[in-house]
Amino acid sequence: MKNILIIDDASTVRLYHRNILEASGYEVDEATNGVEALEKALSGQFDLFIVDINMPKMNGYEFLQNLRKENITQSPAVMVSTEAADLDHDQAFYSGANLYLVKPIKPLQLMTYVRLLMGEESA
């Protein structure tokens, strides 16, 4: 079974994503900021990361930069944000994200991209 790590400081957002992903048969783990997420990424195997940008302590960009710089994993990462500015978009890819989604996210949209990024059959 494939493992997905959801990184978001809002517990409701984590629960929302968790429900969608678990309904499609994925294993899900959660972290509330970048440092916690790095700790989890260091001790477990994840096939995909869903990363919020604005989080206390360590934000989404810093998390991804560390993940890639330390070569912890090359598993794909989806960055989610409430902002639509191009600048953030560029910074997301520069940090090592594979996809940038703007909230609010619809379940079908999320699943389409998740499957695509994990090299599974696209919906």
């Binding site: 409701t12 957002v13 629960l15 929302y16 429900n19 909230k103 609010p104 996210i105 619809k106 379940p107």
Partner: peptide, 9 residues
């Protein structure tokens, strides 16, 4: 859907 979800919760 997200608003429905979080408001219901």
């Amino acid at each position: 859907p997200y608003i429905q979800f979080t408001a219901d919760l």
